[in-house]
Amino acid sequence: MAKVLLPLHEIIGIPIADLVRAEMQAAQASMEFIENVGFQRDPKADRDDLGELRFVTFRYQYPDQSGKPVSHEVKVPLLSLMPLPLVQIARGEIELVARIEDVKKLALDSVVVARPPGKSETLVAERHEFIASVDGLTAMDDPKTKSAPRIRIKIEVKQSDLPAGFDSLLRKLDQNVVDKPK
C-alpha cells in the first residue's frame, strides 16, 4: 500500500468518525428492534407513527381471601419484558503513531481567527498544520528510524449516558402493566 499523507487532524479524526458511524448503526438497529417488537404499526399510518403498543396477556389462578381460586389476567407491554439492545461503545481506545512528513503553513483566509475589539490585527499571526502518515506502533522504538519525527497518539472514548427519552419510555411501559381479576 502506498504511503498516504494527510493532515494530522484527519489521521486522528477518521477513526473517531468511524466510531460515531458505528454508534449510529447500533442506534438504528436498536430503534428497528423497538419498532418491530414493541409496536403494531398500521400499514396506512404515517411513517413516524409507531402504532399501538404491543402487549402480551397471560392468565393465572390466585386464591382470594377465602382461599377460593380466582382467575387473574395480566397484560404487560412486550417491550418491558425484553432486554432492549441499547448497545454503545463502552470504551474505545485508539492508539497510533503518526510520522511527521511535513509542516504546512495555512493561508490566513482558511483559518478562523479572533480579532480583539477595535483592533485590525489578529491574535494568530500564522498557523501551521502537520502533514503526517501512519506508522506502526513499534516505529517509535525502531533504532533505524528513531530520528524521524513521530507523535504517539492515544485517544480514549467513553460511553455516553442513557438518553432521557429511554428512561421515560421504560417508566411509561412499567405503568402500563395491568393485573386484574377476570
Rank of each mutant, 00 (worst) to 15 (best):
L108F: 11
L81T: 02
F58S: 09
L173W: 08
V134N: 05
D174G: 15
Q61N: 07
A114G: 12
P85Q: 05
G51Y: 04
L19Y: 11
H128W: 15
V124P: 03
D49V: 02
E129H: 10
Q159S: 04
L137H: 06
V70E: 01
D167H: 13
S66V: 04
P63K: 00
Q28C: 11
A107P: 14
F166I: 10
R47P: 07
V56I: 09
L19C: 06
Q40A: 13
G165L: 12
E93T: 14
L96W: 01
L137T: 09
S71T: 14
L6C: 03
G136T: 15
P117G: 05
L81F: 02
D46R: 07
V124K: 09
I34H: 08
R150K: 15
G92T: 01
D49I: 06
I131M: 13
I155L: 05
Y60G: 05
G92A: 05
E93G: 10
E101M: 07
G118R: 12
L50Q: 04
A29R: 15
K182L: 10
D141M: 02
P116N: 11
K144H: 13
D135A: 09
G92M: 00
P163H: 14
F33P: 04
E129G: 14
D179H: 01
A26N: 13
I12P: 00
V56S: 02
S80P: 03
F55R: 02
D109G: 03
L96Q: 15
F39N: 06
G67H: 01
